[in-house]
Design a protein around this nucleic acid. Structure first.
Lengths: 153, 153
DNA sequence: TATTGTTATACTCTATAACTATA
DNA sequence: TATAGTTATAGAGTATAACAATA
């Protein structure tokens, strides 16, 4: 790890961390998270909100809870997130006809626009972060990550 | 994405998310983070603290700020983290001789023990999460992640 | 004037428990 | 009785600005 120290740059050993996949996942994920913020700066759309928009767009009428479960977001935490999206006019929330306890979520035209514009921007940013990886390596990365995600719980 | 819905399990499409490396990094990183908590449950050592322990052990006498920079932790946030480790008797903090503004950090014997015991546990847990990946694929994963980390800022 | 560490503060994400209304 | 959504709350990670001591 190279670190700035006032005048020059020195190499700092990370110890055990260097060999731990968990550490590198965390750092790489942070790099993407920060870049996401830059990409979406000003739109008010954060990573979680973008995720919800994407899932609702892909599953019109999906329940609030089901959408949360697909994204690993707890019921309780979904409430204010959905409020934000509804208040911003990006998704529509109405009582589900088949189950009056639940909410059916759909994306609004404005939400579709925001999702499309956001996707475009984020893809461009991801290209920069992944510019050192070949197409084959990018596929490999996503494949490896998905196999790790499957280990959840 | 397969999601439990009371009686059965349904497949939910993720939309654009599916193709975004940032999303998969976040999910995979969370899986590792949760597993880390389980592995270290009760010891009070969290991911960040473990990281600091590892860097201090690998760089005896390192400055507080330099250690933070190596780990992507801001000065202001290092303060309470280092306090925790000092209070727990895991690291030693003394004024640096060459620069009396700075603190020189060293790991204590108790800190070394905690780091060794923690490393052992975490390695075992990582083996479970990575059990579907071959040795070659694990090397590949870390290599790809490091190349992404290099894109920081 | 710049840097090290500090304090104060705020925002986001995540986790839990208790509540309501429907099923 | 179980589930969907809600409220309240708390812990943890991260970010910024302003300050004291030292360089």
């Amino acid at each position: 790890m190279d670190v700035e120290t006032g005048d020059r740059e020195i190499r700092i050993a990370l110890g055990v961390l260097e060999e731990l996949a968990g550490y590198h996942l965390r750092r790489a994920s942070t790099v993407f998270g920060n870049d996401f913020s830059r990409a979406m700066g000003g739109t008010g759309i954060r990573q979680v909100l973008f995720g919800i928009l994407s899932v609702v767009a892909a599953n019109p009428g999906i329940n609030q809870g089901t959408a949360g479960r697909a994204l690993g977001i707890q019921r309780a935490n979904m409430v204010s997130l959905i409020n934000e999206l509804v208040d911003a006019g990006l998704i529509d929330r109405r009582t589900a006809e088949e189950d009056r306890r639940a909410f059916a979520l759909t994306i609004t035209p404005a939400g579709s626009d925001a999702l499309a514009a956001g996707s475009k921007r984020i893809r461009k940013h991801e290209q920069r972060l992944l510019s050192d990886l070949s197409a084959e390596e990018r596929r490999m990365l996503i494949d490896l990550l998905q196999r790790i995600e499957a280990k959840e719980d």
